[in-house]
């Protein structure tokens, strides 16, 4: 039918043609817009739901942690490593020149000001999401004394920075703030001026 019409009108001049083309394009555009409007809610249902987003702060009491001790807490389904570092470990992290790092970042930028001994990092390897070893006494800590991911051999240093292996970036520092000297709340941004470096 459409083909017949076009053939019939084709000889009469381009006016009829362009009006019909306009209708086709307008209809097509409208349909595409409608399809996208329906597709977006369907796709967006797969993003984190409100209750998943709501469960987003965790309070941690640091008082029982002894110097040199590491603990793991669960935050947003993933482990967060809290490391009360010794002077030696801090020293080790700070004497490394930035140019030796795969993902250059100073140790000072990864801890809160005046809280140098407390390293808080998300314990999920930035390569493919395994949990690095090093949290329990006697477990492998890798060549740089931090953490070692057994899946594909990534080594992290005492600041949780990637030093060797396939992981592309440092273990990330989550949002947290000190609610008192010995308590932190994961999931809240620090007040200005307590976070050094950045």
């Amino acid at each position: 039918m459409a083909a017949d019409d076009q053939a019939a009108h084709g000889t009469e001049g381009s006016d009829e043609h362009s009006r019909r083309d306009f209708l086709y394009i307008a209809t097509g555009a409208f349909t595409a817009f409608g399809a996208a409007a329906v597709a977006w809610p369907l796709l967006d249902t797969l993003n984190p739901a409100a209750d998943t987003l709501a469960a987003s702060t965790v309070d941690v009491d640091l008082a029982p942690i002894k110097p040199g001790q590491r603990i793991t807490v669960k935050y947003r389904g993933s482990p967060v490593f809290i490391d009360r570092r010794s002077k030696v470990q801090i020293e080790e992290a700070r004497k490394v020149p930035l140019k030796d790092l795969q993902d250059p970042e100073t140790d000072e930028a990864r801890v809160h000001k005046g809280k140098d001994e407390w390293l808080v990092i998300v314990g999920v390897c930035t390569h493919l999401g395994c949990i690095p070893l090093g949290q329990t006494p006697g477990s492998k800590r890798g060549e740089f004394g931090g953490w070692f991911c057994p899946c594909h051999g990534s080594h992290y240093d005492t600041s949780g920075r990637i030093r060797k292996g396939p992981a592309p970036t440092n273990l990330p520092v989550p949002d947290y703030r000190f609610t008192s000297d010995t308590r932190i709340r994961l999931g809240e941004k620090p007040k200005e001026d307590t976070k050094a470096g950045s």
Partner: peptide, 13 residues
């Protein structure tokens, strides 16, 4: 990845 997971890691969703 967040979209694939429906959360912040692999979980019930």
């Amino acid at each position: 990845t967040t979209w694939l997971w429906g959360g912040f890691t692999v979980d019930n969703p």
